[in-house]
Design a protein around this nucleic acid. Structure first.
Lengths: 127, 127
DNA sequence: ATTATATAATTACAGGTGTAATCTATTCTT
DNA sequence: AAGAATAGATTACACCTGTAATTATATAAT
């Protein structure tokens, strides 16, 4: 529910596949993770365990195996993290972050058009 | 020079005041930090020490005391961190991050106008 | 029923972090 | 000169992280 939960970067990667597809067993999660890079089964199990303890995910027993589900919403978690970064390095403002990308040529035509789209939408919704 | 350096959140806070004003002695840094919240002198010294070891800051001896200087550019560090977050949670795209803010009403009229400004500038500079 | 196998729980372990206290060498006071 | 104050160096210490190995337990196979 409320995002008091702190999760680490690797824990996030595991949670990510659970967000994409849940509920899921440890083995399903491990298989999915291994599509991208090598993950040791034991490592993933440890991370799942830690996230259970942190309350970031929950599970149901399906006989001997556990079927996990996220207890944390992706959107609220990423928003919290984004706000934290903005707070820490850009006085909480979004523009300086975007300016940093612009300055070092990290923005594509596509990015710009997506941003314009968002702004248009915002302006329609507000005022 | 090249930003290989990993610094922690608290280290960043200390480095922040050094970026604002350098070179500076430990005491000057401590004084500045304490304008905002309580910082124990020993803690700050430890952090300075660690950053020296990491190569994030350097110093010159002024008799018995050290005068510190950042060896890391703020802009490149914040850009690196921003990119890292975007990579990890938004497939490297900026728009979804901004969309998250919009969705939860975290954008002000001011933010929007700053973003528009940036976009205009970008369009002028590019194509 | 015994053994092999699969799952989860517990333990490991080095390196980072936040937060200091203690030790050591030097400089300022008196 | 002797003692006090100070700056930096070293040590402390619990908790988090990344990365597993080991152990215990339950189930499947023979």
């Amino acid at each position: 529910m409320s995002t008091i939960t702190e999760i680490s970067k690797t824990e996030f990667e595991v949670l990510e596949v659970l967000w994409q597809q849940h509920p899921a067993s440890a083995n399903e999660i491990i298989a999915k993770l291994n599509e991208n890079k090598e993950w040791h089964e034991k490592t993933v199990k440890t991370l799942l365990n830690r996230m259970v303890k942190k309350g970031a995910i929950g599970f149901e027993k399906q006989q001997r195996t556990y079927i996990y589900t996220p207890l944390l919403e992706r959107d609220s978690y990423t928003l919290k993290e984004s706000k934290s970064l903005l707070e820490r390095m850009f006085s909480g403002k979004i523009a300086p972050l975007v300016a940093g990308f612009a300055k070092s040529d990290e923005l594509s035509k596509q990015d710009i058009s997506e941003l314009k789209q968002l702004i248009d939408q915002w302006e329609q919704d507000n005022d």
